[in-house]
Every structure is written in structure tokens, then in C-alpha cells.
Amino acid sequence: MKILIVYYSTFGNTYKMARLIAEGVKEAGGDPVIRKCPELIPEQVIASRPDMQAGREMQKDIPVVTIDDFKNADGYAFGTPTRFGNVSAQLKNVIDQLGPLWIQRIFEGKPAGVFVSTGTMHGGQESTILTFMTVLLHLGFVIVGVPYSVADLYLTKGGGSPYGPGHVAEAENKREIDENEANICKAFGRRLTEIAKKLKR
């Protein structure tokens, strides 16, 4: 059961979430495939920002997602930092190239969900996931979130909601993913894989 985890991460926080979701996929007997989105920020901007350079270095071994990655998956997790309460341009750019697969109905009946990272508690986690769900519905996906049987939803002081995993990175993007946020990521990976198995049957 192949689960594509495609994400964009400027400073590495969404990437760390992708890795935790991959752990959950493996725990449920799935095969996680982690892929990043192409960068759109100009090189001169990145060159002037040590924090962005560190984020890029952290992800240097992750391949850029391809159309074939999308074709060959049984389930999908889309990860993004929020951009003014909405999805990053980098992930939206990838989504906007999926028209040919949409025409072929590649995604219909397959599970998908969204995970996000924000700088602040109310930085748009839920709005970003909810607005991204309209894209998933257009493509034909079956939407997967995180049910309240995952006890960490009651305990989290950072990110995570029934809509999907979340992380609060704080103002300088340096806050590490805490235990509750990590558990929600793993639970999401497990659930995505389990639902993918059921839908494939």
C-alpha cells in the first residue's frame, strides 16, 4: 500500500511532520513515499537567509515530486506551511499540474488528507486545511482527518485538529514538534493507510 506524502517546507517543520506521518504509515503496514515540491522563492532571497538555507540543507536528499509519484499511489498526504491562512504557492503549483490525472480519474475513491505548520496558534491551520479540502473534493479524493479516538487531540497545546495534523513552530520557526503533535501525525499516517487498504479492497 503506497502512500505519497508530498509537502513543501521552507524551514523544515513541515518536512519533520512528513517524516512522522511516514512512521505511522509504516506502523500500519504501508509504504511511505516522501516527496517535496519545487522551490519558487528566488535564489537570491534564500542566499540571504541562513534559516532558509538550513531548511533546504535538511531536505537535500528528498526527491522532487513527479506525476508518476501521483499515478502510483494508493493514498495521499499533502503538507504545507500556511500562507496568510491558505496553502503555500509551492504546493498549489504542484496541484495545478494535476489536470491530466484528474481527467483520467486517477484520484477518485482514494483517500487523502492535509497537514500544516504555522508560526502561531491561530495562524490559519484550520482555514488552510478546510480550504484545501475543496481541491481534494474536486479531484475526487475521499477526505481523511483525525478522529477524537486519538486522545492527543484533547491534550495538544500546539497543533492538530479533527481536520488534520498541525504544528505551531512559533515566530522564528524553531519550536520543535511536541509529543502530542507527533502522536497526531503518526495516527494520521496509520489511519490514511488503513483507509487506503479498505478502499482498495
Rank of each mutant, 00 (worst) to 15 (best):
S9H: 03
E194C: 03
A47M: 10
T134A: 09
T80H: 03
Y7F: 12
I184R: 05
D68F: 06
I34Q: 00
P165E: 05
F115V: 05
L136V: 07
D178H: 10
P100L: 15
K60Q: 06
E108I: 14
C185K: 02
E172F: 07
K174H: 07
G29L: 05
E194N: 09
S127G: 05
E170L: 11
F11Q: 09
Y15I: 01
V64F: 12
I195R: 07
A77D: 02
Y15G: 10
E194M: 10
I129Y: 04
S117Q: 02
K36C: 04
R56W: 04
S88V: 06
Y76K: 12
K157P: 00
G160K: 06
L199V: 10
G24A: 03
V64D: 05
N93R: 09
V142Y: 08
G160H: 03
E170N: 06
V6P: 08
M58S: 11
V94W: 12
G99V: 15
Q104W: 05
P81C: 01
A112Y: 11
I46M: 11
D31A: 09
V146Q: 08
M121R: 14
E181L: 04
F78I: 02
Q59C: 14
F78N: 00
M17L: 08
V116S: 01
A47P: 13
C37H: 12
A196N: 08
F115Q: 07
D178M: 03
V45P: 08
M133E: 11
V45T: 15
E43R: 14
K16L: 10
T66Y: 11
I21L: 12
D31H: 04
I106S: 04
E39I: 07
A196R: 00
G109L: 03
S127A: 11
V25D: 00
T80E: 02
V142T: 15
Y163R: 13
I67R: 14
L98G: 14
V142L: 03
M1G: 13
P63L: 09
T128C: 09
D61W: 02
A22V: 03
T134S: 15
K71G: 15
A112I: 08
V135P: 12
L153P: 15
G29S: 10
I177C: 05
Q104T: 09
N13L: 07
S117D: 01
C37K: 12
D51G: 01
P111T: 00
P165N: 02
H138W: 12
N72F: 06
Y76F: 12
Y8C: 13
C185R: 07
K16F: 07
P38N: 06
R191D: 00
K92E: 04
K198N: 08
I95E: 10
P162M: 09
I46Y: 02
I3Y: 04
T156H: 09
V65I: 00
N13T: 02
P81S: 08
G12C: 03
R175S: 05
V150F: 02
Q125S: 10
G123H: 04
Y148H: 06
K174Y: 04
R56Q: 12
M58C: 05
V135M: 15
T193E: 03
Y76L: 12
Q104C: 08
T131F: 12
